[in-house]
Amino acid sequence: MARYAMAIDTVRCVGCMDCVAACKTENGVPEGYDRDWITYESTGQFPTLHMEIRSERCNHCDDPPCVGCCPCGASHIHERGGVVLVHHDKCSGCKACIAACPYDARFIHPDGYADKCTFCIHRVEAGKDPACVAVCPTHCMHFGDLEDPHSEVSRILASRNSHALVPAAGTKPQIFYLR
């Protein structure tokens, strides 16, 4: 079984939002919404500052609270790679998943269903990287299978320090930020 994950290099990332633009065009995300976004987290006092820039999205958690809470069976774990997806036709738009997500990753699409990052599963199944990864001009994003120790994402996570977001939520997120 594959276990898809992303390792995102905060050292290289400049926060240019190309990942956001690519997701919008690849997936036809409606105006006013986004499936991925940039967070600029700066700490310290001028001029002694530190800033981490992160491209964020659904963490495709191993223990996703958005799936357990869904009353319609719309939120589910895809058979391939542990990707968390939503059956649009089954979703009632009740927003339980939005409340449950610790990452603010979901929104209600104008057509009435909960929407979010799919890891571009349609591209991955065609042997391509997700659009955000493929477009990145800084080559800061790595996608792959954590079950395969030789995958790029496994190798880079083995060799670099990284952290995930909101670990206290206990959802086992699968997006890792390299420092």
Partner: peptide
């Protein structure tokens, strides 16, 4: 940084009825 992302979208006036970019 200090505004939540979705809240920012709300106050900048985007609504569920906004036109699709497509």
């Amino acid at each position: 940084n200090a505004l939540s992302r979705r809240k920012f979208l709300k106050i900048t006036g985007f609504t569920a009825g906004a036109a699709a970019a497509g």
